Amino acid sequence: MNRSEFRFFERLRVRWAEIDAQKIVFNAHYLMYLDTAIAAYWRALALPYEQTMHALGGDLYVRKATLEYHGSARYDDQIDVGLRCERIGNSSILFRGGVFRADEALVGGELVYVFADPATQTAVPVPQPLREVLNGFEAGRPMVDVRVGDWRELGRDAQAIRTAVFVDEQKIPAELEWDVADAGAVHAVAYNRIGHAVGTGRLLSHVPGVAKIGRMAVSQAVRGSGVGRAVLEALMAQARARGEREVLLHAQASAASFYTRAGFSPRGPMFEEAGIPHIEMVRSL
């Protein structure tokens, strides 16, 4: 087992509560590490787990979990948990896992899930859309498709995401979220590979030569999986196509590092919008 067998990794750090009297990670915790990585794997697929299973009419149940120990992790080690979907049967899915400290393989694992009817917990065939997502991810295909259009085309899906993120989660008053600018803006919505909207943003004209990106929102369950970056890149591509020389945005302070990684620079002091600290950030195109 080596790292090159996996294209997906979740980085974890060993906590004090996870070591035993031998001062190494207690053996059962490696199953928890694999399970934590499985949750991150679903994020990488841009599939909110509960919503996805409901749409597919089933759920996944563990049939078998095995571990093989080669070495031991210790307190405060950084470990990388690799996962890959190795085989999809009629109703079963086999995931192969590996726990690594740098390049050292510590533990190998195998998780077998069965797709089943939640009401009866009887096995049913793995739905074709789920097969395609899993195989597509392992083949390195994009997990989201970003569509660009106007409010008439994309408003329904954009509104649902923005309501969930800004109104429900961040408690921004609805009357501050909705404005007349939506009607004339260019909107981008990211859809996962089973057709669910998971991210959105909009592009406005600011002053000649400068565009403004705003209302960037990603469904909570898939944050950190590249959805926001895909939406941002789509909006910047639209700005370039219009001949804009610069794009600006008002970033929530908590998201400033995300925009910094995308090439934006802060400009001016911090300020408040809708009771949330923001900073203006700009990028040349």
Rank of each mutant, 00 (worst) to 15 (best):
E68W: 12
H70Y: 14
G71R: 08
G71D: 11
A73H: 02
R74N: 07
Y75N: 05
D77L: 07
D77T: 07
Q78P: 06
Q78G: 09
I79D: 06
V81R: 06
V81L: 12
V81G: 09
V81W: 11
G82M: 10
L83P: 01
L83G: 06
R84C: 09
R84W: 05
R84P: 00
C85I: 13
C85P: 08
C85G: 11
C85W: 14
R87V: 02
R87W: 13
R87M: 08
I88H: 00
G89V: 10
N90E: 14
S92K: 08
I93V: 13
I93S: 11
I93E: 10
L94V: 14
L94A: 04
L94P: 01
L94Q: 07
F95V: 05
R96Y: 08
R96D: 09
G97V: 09
G97C: 12
G97F: 08
G97P: 02
G97S: 13
G97K: 05
V99L: 10
R101H: 08
R101W: 03
E104G: 05
E104C: 03
E104D: 13
E104Y: 09
A105H: 14
A105P: 12
L106F: 01
L106S: 01
L106A: 00
V107C: 00
V107I: 12
V107H: 04
V107S: 03
V107T: 08
G108I: 02
G108P: 00
G109K: 02
G109D: 02
E110I: 10
E110H: 08
E110M: 13
L111T: 15
L111C: 11
L111I: 15
V112W: 03
V112R: 11
Y113D: 03
V114H: 00
V114A: 10
V114M: 03
D117T: 09
P118N: 10
A119P: 03
A119S: 14
Q121T: 15
A123S: 13
V124C: 04
P125K: 15
P125Y: 15
P125W: 15
P127T: 12
P127R: 14
P129E: 01
P129L: 08
L130H: 04
L130Q: 07
L130I: 04
L130R: 07
R131Y: 01
R131L: 06
R131Q: 09
E132D: 14
E132F: 01
V133F: 01
L134M: 03
L134K: 00
N135Q: 12
G136W: 05
F137P: 00
E138M: 03
E138F: 02
E138D: 05
A139C: 05
A139N: 07
A139P: 04
G140T: 13
R141E: 14
P142K: 02
P142L: 04
M143C: 04
V144R: 01
D145C: 06
D145G: 00
D145L: 06
D145W: 02
V146K: 01
R147T: 07
R147H: 13
R147S: 08
G149H: 07
D150N: 13
W151Q: 10
W151E: 09
R152K: 10
E153N: 06
E153S: 15
E153I: 05
G155V: 13
G155R: 10
R156H: 14
R156E: 12
D157M: 11
D157R: 14
D157S: 12
A158S: 15
Q159R: 15
A160H: 12
I161Y: 10
I161R: 02
R162G: 04
R162I: 11
T163P: 00
T163C: 02
T163K: 09
V167L: 10
V167G: 06
D168R: 12
